[in-house]
Nucleic acid binder design. Structure first.
Lengths: 329, 329
DNA sequence: CTGAAAGCGCTTACAG
DNA sequence: CTGAAAGCGCTTACAG
């Protein structure tokens, strides 16, 4: 591994000159530039990223903190975050918080250690105040943390409305919404608002259930349905689930307990992630979030914040959603 | 953001002393240590990771290169790689090669820029020679690149045998194996060997088809089945697919074309990743790879290689597989 | 037990 | 158009 000094010696110029060639400075004679370039290839020289970062006081790495990259929704989100970052010269440091608050905090400390230039935050256990002490680029997925921290998310309110209105238009008279915990003030809570308002406007009976955040797995959801949801199932004829894995777990529960979907019970999910798109039996009726665009915007915006050194230019963005009709309604 | 100098000044000691406290050196008086510790908390000081890396000439980051983190198999693998890395003080830089050779190469250059201390390579388009010029810690998933580069993988040969024997035991008389390209010398090719030998030993007719690596998506597989596999379907009664998404695509194709599974055609997949485990209709018969253990070993071993500075102590490892019976056989 | 100084490999005013 | 020197924020022999 040779350093810039070796190149300078080999090309018979100063270190400064080599650095200038490396960084494409204009005022260099064609001859000198070529000499340096030749030495670089001759020695197979590669600039040391750490040294460059230290002297430029910048890191081309973005931290991405999510609950679990094996969850199909986040797997897909991360893919698009990474692709966009890569296209803009950044790499991503992937962190699974596993919904553990301590881990979230310790991952965020990467900012203070200057390991990363900014963070995309998709895991939401730490309370809002903590973030205000950081004063460095952070953008979130689907959570409001304060006016100086932008978020990107889908139009959860409209999503809630679309899902609910669809259930009502399909003939449902009594609805249930199964939601993630409202304790965390995430934008996803607005799905419940959309649900509630649409029910009220249509003069429809409704109930809302909140599961706690833990493992976001099929098994957890299935257990939750068995213990908490199933007692209500006789009173209702339509369910709006806060995500597709949950919706699928409910569908499977119904199949196993001779509840006919969509005849007796209609189900709408949320996300339309890869798993849902692949699933053929059943095709779940769901609200589609534009995952690729969300990922892209998270990356682009955090990069803009990093490079501008300012937050004001970046605004929170809410992206359109649409209903995808399957056979569960 | 304050530096080690500020802490030194605040505590009235030298920078050296602060550094010693930071690095838990033994020979420091309790009093001095406490003074420094107090200053650190008073100033909310966090050591600069870049500076430390530069002077120690080490990076606590592992590069992870895979084709696509949104593929359920890799999503799960990455999760376990990351968890293990984190538990050992390392972070991971996630790279999706999207099966693009250029990207693979440029991601590997991270090693030469000292951005990462080592690389876990799960994407296999570059030919073997290239790696020999790197002389730095690399470990691969499922591919042999040379004696000095260990790999971790499941027992592909046995997997192929198990799948094939199971089809034969279920009454199949004429088998097809759909495999990834054999051009890349990955360990996965041994699945075909296991298949072939088991067919020969049992005196069974067989054929092998190779699809090209491109997008590893359901849609690609479905199209491939339509154009290339379907003409053969009348001659055979059992298929061993090289992965579960492919097996699922085949199942869906059969459903859509009135081919009864498992009656007319029996199907065995490979992987038993999250998608397959979640899938209830149908539960696919498949060969389960121990994904969590593979991820864990990839991390642990690359870390050992990094810290030992030697390759010899790390050996390639082949992990056991088992058959999971579903309803497609 | 503690500190002054050199060094890690770059970049960037400053000077010519 | 080019170079000598200081600096980024740490660590680590070396000396006492």
């Amino acid at each position: 591994m040779c350093s810039i000094k070796d190149v300078a010696k080999h090309a018979n110029v100063s270190v400064t000159t080599v650095s200038r060639v490396l960084n494409d400075f204009p005022n260099i004679s064609a001859k000198t530039r070529q000499k340096v370039l030749d030495s670089i290839t001759a020695l197979d020289y590669h600039p040391d990223y750490m040294a460059r970062s230290l002297s430029k006081q910048q890191s081309l790495i973005i931290g991405v903190i999510i609950p679990d990259c094996s969850h199909p929704f986040f797997a897909e989100l991360v893919k698009h975050i990474e692709m966009t970052a890569e296209n803009n010269g950044y790499k991503i440091l992937l962190c699974n918080s596993l919904n553990d608050e301590k881990k979230e905090r310790s991952y965020i400390n990467m900012l203070k250690e200057k390991r990363v230039a900014g963070i995309i935050m998709g895991s939401h256990l730490i309370n809002t105040d903590f973030y205000q002490s950081i004063h460095r680029p952070i953008i979130t997925f689907d959570r409001y943390l304060g006016d100086n921290i932008p978020y990107i998310g889908s139009d959860n309110f409209t999503g809630g409305q679309l899902a609910t209105q669809h259930l009502i238009d399909s003939g449902c008279k009594s609805l249930l919404h199964i939601s993630g915990s409202h304790q965390l003030h995430t934008q996803a809570n607005k799905r419940s608002d959309g649900f509630k308002i649409t029910c009220i406007e249509n003069d429809i009976n409704y109930q809302i259930l909140e599961y706690q955040y833990a493992q976001l797995t099929f098994d957890y959801y299935y257990e939750y349905i068995k213990t908490t949801v199933s007692p209500l199932l006789s009173e209702i004829d339509g369910v709006f689930c806060s995500n597709d894995i949950l919706a699928y777990a409910l569908y499977v529960y119904c199949t196993n307990h001779d509840i006919s979907v969509p005849k007796t019970l209609k189900i709408v999910g949320y996300d339309y992630c890869q798993f849902t798109r692949l699933l053929q039996h059943p095709r779940i009726t769901t609200i589609a979030q534009p995952i690729p665009i969300i990922g892209e915007l998270l990356s682009k915006n955090i990069i803009q914040m990093i490079e501008d050194g300012e937050t004001h230019n970046v605004y929170s963005q809410t992206l359109g959603v649409k209903l995808v009709k399957g056979i569960t309604t």
